[in-house]
Amino acid sequence: HNLTITQGKLFFHYNPKLCLSEIHKMEEVSGTKGRQERNDIALKTNGDQASCENELLKFSYIRTSFDKILLRWEPYWPPDFRDLLGFMLFYKEAPYQNVTEFDGQDACGSNSWTVVDIDPPLRSNDPKSQNHPGWLMRGLKPWTQYAIFVKTLVTFSDERRTYGAKSDIIYVQTDATNPSVPLDPISVSNSSSQIILKWKPPSDPNGNITHYLVFWERQAEDSELFELDYCLKGLKLPSRTWSPPFESEDSQKHNQSEYEDSAGECCSCPKTDSQILKELEESSFRKTFEDYLHNVVFVPRKTSSGTGAEDPRPSRKRRSLGDVGNVTVAVPTVAAFPNTSSTSVPTSPEEHRPFEKVVNKESLVISGLRHFTGYRIELQACNQDTPEERCSVAAYVSARTMPEAKADDIVGPVTHEIFENNVVHLMWQEPKEPNGLIVLYEVSYRRYGDEELHLCVSRKHFALERGCRLRGLSPGNYSVRIRATSLAGNGSWTEPTYFYVTDYLDVPSNIA
């Protein structure tokens, strides 16, 4: 807008934040220059609390790290170098490059900038070799853009010569660093050979998330399962459950009422301010606690030095998902009996873990797994792929695949051998790939016309006998059925096997 004052003059007093240069501009645009008398524009009460600059400061050096910015700028000295009290560095987070010096300023003089007072450097006698002032900004957020400017702080001049310097606002972004852990990993099994893994992005990506790394490792069953005799009275049979499938998407929606109208769909109840505040506090606490764990609990591995020492970490090797089922080394339970199943799973520490690289999504279907087997899954978020990966501390989750139908069934015939004193040795093959492992066998036998009897055969007993022995049988026709019990439950009964026990007292003698 054009402003013209045809008559009258300007009068400025007691404006401590208004620089004289701005008042002189007002004289020019209003056409009143030359009308004012000496005392109409006070030299001592206008701009006496402001830094009124008329020179431009330029930054000469900028260096960044993930949490620091090192700045240096060209030296500046007023005509009387004693008038320079120091520099004021202003900075704040700036997602967009549209910041002005006066953003967030209120009537009390406060604003949204963080201000650092910096002492002037030592003055050199040689004007050509003056030290460049600077400042190291610490405690910054990774991968965050900051708006920065600097200006001088000078003393009051009796001659009211307006001098000083100020830089333009520059924008500097800190470097990326390792992201925080992925949030809320959930693993479920939808079949006997697959596990579905879902997660949420890290709360602090500290860069642009480029991919996720998912490692999985087959877990050995508890050692007590191999040692305890679950045929003993009072000892509860062990059981394991597989990871249940995901709930429906509708039930997972946030901010939804727990109660549904019987007449149909209901609208979600909005969260109160107290609920939102509580969630923010919980989120802040979780982030602080995660940072504490990362800094205190997890110790970084030592990389190899120039002395030739090897990095103890196993090298990563990509495998196809079809090879995942046989990740671990199978060892027989008892070496003397080769027909026992290889369900003991000690994992070799030198073995390469299978892994998958996930790009542009937060889910993965891990296939080719062994049925009813526990897996430990390790999830890392990465925001750099080359020249070397920059990934987060791992988040861990466990899951067990679903049982395989008929995996616990005894394959092959049940054979028998009759000894003296009416002892019958029953023999059968253990299931080759049971659900988890076989903890015991149930032997059901009966003599024709009598009630059915049951015998429990422990895992250890089966390994020693290759089956079991029935003792003290009365003469007669017998039928026997056997079924295995694994961590997933009972298998199917075998087809009945028949044998006849004679009275050993009636056996004919070869003595003449």
Results as ranks from 00 to 15, higher is better:
residue 204 D to P: 00
residue 205 P to C: 02
residue 205 P to W: 08
residue 205 P to M: 08
residue 205 P to H: 06
residue 208 N to L: 09
residue 209 I to D: 07
residue 209 I to L: 14
residue 209 I to E: 09
residue 210 T to S: 14
residue 211 H to C: 00
residue 215 F to Y: 14
residue 218 R to S: 11
residue 218 R to G: 12
residue 219 Q to Y: 15
residue 219 Q to S: 09
residue 220 A to N: 13
residue 221 E to G: 15
residue 222 D to K: 11
residue 222 D to F: 11
residue 223 S to E: 14
residue 224 E to S: 14
residue 225 L to P: 03
residue 226 F to M: 06
residue 227 E to P: 07
residue 229 D to Y: 13
residue 230 Y to M: 04
residue 231 C to N: 04
residue 231 C to R: 05
residue 232 L to T: 12
residue 232 L to Y: 08
residue 235 L to W: 11
residue 237 L to C: 15
residue 238 P to T: 05
residue 239 S to W: 15
residue 240 R to S: 14
residue 240 R to A: 03
residue 240 R to T: 13
residue 243 S to V: 08
residue 243 S to G: 10
residue 243 S to L: 12
residue 244 P to G: 15
residue 244 P to N: 13
residue 248 S to P: 09
residue 249 E to P: 05
residue 252 Q to S: 12
residue 253 K to S: 12
residue 253 K to P: 07
residue 255 N to I: 06
residue 255 N to V: 05
residue 256 Q to A: 15
residue 257 S to A: 13
residue 258 E to F: 09
residue 258 E to V: 04
residue 259 Y to K: 12
residue 260 E to N: 15
residue 260 E to G: 06
residue 261 D to V: 11
residue 262 S to N: 06
residue 263 A to D: 09
residue 264 G to C: 04
residue 265 E to H: 08
residue 266 C to P: 04
residue 266 C to I: 07
residue 266 C to T: 05
residue 266 C to W: 10
residue 267 C to F: 05
residue 268 S to N: 10
residue 269 C to K: 07
residue 271 K to G: 03
residue 272 T to G: 09
residue 273 D to A: 15
residue 273 D to F: 08
residue 274 S to V: 08
residue 277 L to I: 09
residue 277 L to T: 05
residue 280 L to E: 15
residue 281 E to H: 14
residue 282 E to Q: 05
residue 282 E to R: 03
residue 284 S to A: 15
residue 285 F to L: 04
residue 286 R to Q: 03
residue 286 R to H: 01
residue 286 R to L: 02
residue 289 F to H: 01
residue 290 E to D: 04
residue 291 D to F: 03
residue 291 D to N: 15
residue 292 Y to D: 03
residue 295 N to M: 05
residue 296 V to K: 15
residue 296 V to S: 11
residue 297 V to L: 04
residue 297 V to A: 04
residue 297 V to D: 04
residue 297 V to W: 01
residue 298 F to P: 02
residue 301 R to G: 07
residue 301 R to A: 01
residue 301 R to S: 02
residue 301 R to I: 03
residue 302 K to I: 12
residue 302 K to P: 15
residue 302 K to T: 02
residue 303 T to D: 07
residue 303 T to C: 15
residue 306 G to W: 13
residue 306 G to N: 11
residue 307 T to S: 12
residue 308 G to Y: 15
residue 311 D to E: 14
residue 312 P to Y: 10
residue 312 P to K: 06
residue 314 P to F: 07
residue 315 S to N: 14
residue 315 S to R: 11
residue 315 S to T: 12
residue 316 R to V: 14
residue 317 K to Y: 08
residue 319 R to H: 09
residue 320 S to N: 11
residue 321 L to K: 13
residue 322 G to C: 10
residue 322 G to P: 13
residue 323 D to F: 15
residue 327 V to H: 11
residue 330 A to H: 14
residue 331 V to T: 11
residue 331 V to D: 13
residue 332 P to I: 13
residue 333 T to A: 15
residue 334 V to Q: 07
residue 334 V to T: 09
residue 334 V to M: 08
residue 334 V to N: 08
residue 335 A to H: 11
residue 336 A to D: 11
residue 336 A to I: 10
residue 336 A to P: 11
residue 336 A to L: 11
residue 336 A to V: 09
residue 338 P to S: 10
residue 340 T to S: 12
residue 341 S to T: 11
residue 341 S to W: 14
residue 341 S to Y: 00
residue 341 S to H: 12
residue 343 T to C: 10
residue 344 S to H: 10
residue 344 S to A: 12
residue 347 T to Q: 12
residue 347 T to L: 14
residue 349 P to S: 10
residue 351 E to L: 14
residue 351 E to Q: 12
residue 353 R to S: 14
residue 353 R to D: 15
residue 353 R to K: 10
residue 355 F to L: 11
residue 356 E to Q: 08
residue 357 K to E: 14
residue 357 K to S: 14
residue 357 K to V: 15
residue 358 V to R: 14
residue 358 V to G: 11
residue 358 V to S: 07
residue 359 V to N: 11
residue 359 V to R: 09
residue 360 N to G: 09
residue 361 K to M: 10
residue 363 S to W: 07
residue 363 S to N: 06
residue 366 I to R: 06
residue 366 I to D: 10
residue 366 I to G: 00
residue 367 S to P: 09
residue 368 G to I: 10
residue 369 L to G: 04
residue 370 R to K: 13
residue 371 H to P: 12
residue 371 H to A: 13
residue 371 H to G: 11
residue 372 F to E: 02
residue 372 F to P: 01
residue 375 Y to V: 15
residue 377 I to S: 03
residue 377 I to Q: 01
residue 378 E to R: 06
residue 380 Q to I: 15
residue 380 Q to H: 15
residue 380 Q to R: 02
residue 384 Q to I: 09
residue 384 Q to R: 08
residue 385 D to W: 09
residue 385 D to N: 09
residue 385 D to T: 02
residue 386 T to I: 12
residue 386 T to H: 08
residue 387 P to I: 04
residue 388 E to T: 05
residue 388 E to K: 08
residue 389 E to S: 06
residue 389 E to R: 11
residue 390 R to K: 01
residue 391 C to S: 04
residue 391 C to M: 14
residue 392 S to Y: 02
residue 392 S to P: 13
residue 392 S to N: 04
residue 395 A to S: 10
residue 395 A to Y: 07
residue 398 S to R: 15
residue 398 S to C: 09
residue 398 S to H: 13
residue 399 A to W: 02
residue 399 A to N: 03
residue 400 R to P: 01
residue 401 T to D: 01
residue 402 M to F: 08
residue 404 E to V: 14
residue 405 A to Q: 03
residue 406 K to G: 13
residue 407 A to H: 14
residue 408 D to T: 06
residue 408 D to A: 03
residue 408 D to P: 01
residue 410 I to L: 11
residue 414 V to H: 04
residue 415 T to Q: 12
residue 415 T to G: 10
residue 415 T to M: 12
residue 418 I to V: 12
residue 418 I to R: 13
residue 419 F to C: 11
residue 420 E to R: 06
residue 421 N to Q: 05
residue 421 N to A: 10
residue 423 V to Q: 03
residue 425 H to S: 11
residue 425 H to Q: 06
residue 425 H to E: 11
residue 425 H to T: 11
residue 429 Q to S: 14
residue 429 Q to G: 15
residue 430 E to L: 11
residue 431 P to Y: 09
residue 432 K to Q: 05
residue 432 K to A: 11
residue 433 E to V: 15
residue 433 E to K: 03
residue 436 G to N: 04
residue 436 G to E: 03
residue 437 L to R: 15
residue 438 I to F: 08
residue 438 I to S: 04
residue 439 V to C: 09
residue 439 V to G: 12
residue 440 L to Q: 06
residue 440 L to E: 04
residue 442 E to T: 12
residue 442 E to L: 14
residue 442 E to Q: 05
residue 442 E to R: 12
residue 443 V to N: 00
residue 444 S to L: 06
residue 445 Y to P: 03
residue 445 Y to I: 02
residue 445 Y to V: 06
residue 447 R to V: 07
residue 447 R to N: 07
residue 448 Y to D: 04
residue 449 G to V: 00
residue 450 D to T: 08
residue 450 D to Y: 14
residue 450 D to Q: 13
residue 452 E to V: 07
residue 452 E to G: 10
residue 455 L to T: 12
residue 455 L to S: 11
residue 457 V to N: 00
residue 461 H to C: 11
residue 461 H to N: 08
residue 462 F to A: 07
residue 462 F to M: 12
residue 462 F to S: 05
residue 464 L to G: 10
residue 465 E to Y: 12
residue 465 E to D: 09
residue 465 E to M: 09
residue 468 C to Q: 04
residue 469 R to Y: 07
residue 471 R to I: 08
residue 472 G to D: 08
residue 474 S to M: 10
residue 474 S to G: 05
residue 476 G to I: 01
residue 476 G to L: 01
residue 476 G to E: 01
residue 478 Y to W: 10
residue 478 Y to H: 10
residue 479 S to W: 13
residue 479 S to D: 09
residue 479 S to N: 08
residue 479 S to I: 11
residue 480 V to T: 06
residue 480 V to C: 15
residue 480 V to F: 09
residue 481 R to W: 09
residue 482 I to S: 01
residue 483 R to E: 00
residue 483 R to Y: 04
residue 484 A to V: 06
residue 484 A to S: 11
residue 486 S to V: 01
residue 486 S to I: 00
residue 486 S to R: 02
residue 488 A to Y: 15
residue 489 G to H: 07
residue 493 W to T: 06
residue 494 T to Y: 02
residue 494 T to A: 06
residue 494 T to M: 04
residue 494 T to E: 00
residue 495 E to R: 14
residue 497 T to G: 11
residue 497 T to R: 11
residue 498 Y to L: 09
residue 498 Y to R: 11
residue 499 F to M: 03
residue 499 F to Q: 08
residue 500 Y to M: 05
residue 500 Y to A: 10
residue 501 V to R: 02
residue 501 V to K: 03
residue 501 V to L: 10
residue 502 T to I: 05
residue 502 T to K: 09
residue 502 T to Y: 14
residue 502 T to N: 12
residue 504 Y to W: 08
residue 505 L to K: 11
residue 506 D to S: 13
residue 507 V to T: 14
residue 509 S to Y: 13
